[in-house]
Lab assay of single mutants.
Amino acid sequence: KRPMNAFMVWARIHRPALAKANPAANNAEISVQLGLEWNKLSEEQKKPYYDEAQKIKEKHREEFPGW
């Protein structure tokens, strides 16, 4: 399985609240909304998620060399 990128790290945190706020929305609609919200963030706001994604990527590389 591929390691999460910065957007996926961010979305994992924000998806539950968005789903709760929009109970009639299906998963595809929630994903679209998450994408729109992510694109509104500044690079500075995204930086912690890029940092976390890098850590996940490095850990994945250690656990699965050659993947």
Rank of each mutant, 00 (worst) to 15 (best):
K1E: 14
K1A: 05
K1G: 09
P3I: 08
P3D: 14
P3L: 11
P3V: 09
M4S: 05
N5F: 05
N5W: 05
N5D: 03
N5Y: 05
A6D: 01
A6G: 08
A6P: 06
F7T: 00
F7R: 06
F7C: 10
F7W: 03
M8T: 07
M8N: 06
M8Y: 02
M8E: 15
M8H: 13
V9N: 08
W10P: 02
W10N: 01
W10Y: 15
A11N: 03
R12N: 13
R12D: 13
R12F: 06
R12Y: 04
R12A: 08
I13G: 04
H14R: 15
H14E: 08
R15D: 00
R15G: 14
R15L: 07
P16W: 02
A17D: 14
L18F: 14
A19G: 04
A19W: 06
K20W: 03
K20F: 07
K20M: 13
K20D: 10
A21V: 06
A21N: 03
A21M: 08
N22G: 01
N22S: 08
N22H: 15
N22E: 03
P23D: 05
P23Q: 02
P23E: 05
P23A: 05
P23Y: 01
P23H: 03
P23M: 01
A25I: 14
A25C: 11
A25K: 13
A25P: 03
N26F: 02
N27V: 07
N27G: 11
A28Y: 07
A28E: 13
A28M: 07
A28L: 05
E29L: 03
E29K: 03
E29R: 02
E29P: 00
E29S: 04
E29M: 03
I30A: 02
I30R: 01
I30L: 13
I30D: 01
S31E: 15
S31K: 14
S31N: 02
S31V: 08
V32G: 10
V32A: 15
Q33G: 03
Q33M: 08
Q33V: 07
L34Q: 02
L34W: 01
L34A: 05
G35N: 15
G35Y: 15
G35R: 15
G35P: 04
G35E: 15
G35W: 15
G35M: 13
L36P: 01
L36M: 12
L36Y: 11
L36E: 14
E37G: 04
E37I: 02
E37T: 07
W38N: 01
W38S: 00
N39A: 14
K40S: 11
L41K: 01
L41S: 00
L41A: 00
L41H: 00
L41T: 00
S42C: 03
S42T: 09
S42Q: 02
S42L: 01
S42A: 05
E43D: 11
E43M: 08
E43P: 14
E44I: 06
E44W: 05
E44F: 02
Q45W: 01
Q45E: 10
Q45T: 01
Q45S: 07
Q45I: 02
K46C: 01
K46E: 00
K47L: 08
Y49V: 01
Y49I: 01
Y49Q: 00
Y50I: 11
D51N: 10
D51M: 10
D51Y: 04
D51H: 08
D51G: 04
E52C: 04
E52N: 09
E52R: 07
E52L: 06
E52D: 04
E52Q: 08
A53P: 02
A53L: 06
A53W: 04
Q54E: 09
Q54T: 08
K55Y: 09
K55E: 12
K55Q: 11
I56K: 11
I56D: 02
I56Y: 13
K57G: 14
K57N: 15
K57D: 11
E58K: 02
E58V: 10
K59W: 09
K59Q: 11
K59R: 08
K59F: 09
H60Q: 15
H60W: 04
H60M: 15
R61W: 08
R61Q: 15
R61E: 08
R61K: 15
E63Y: 05
E63F: 11
E63S: 13
F64P: 13
F64Y: 14
F64D: 12
P65A: 10
P65D: 14
P65H: 06
P65M: 05
G66R: 11
G66N: 10
W67A: 11
W67N: 15
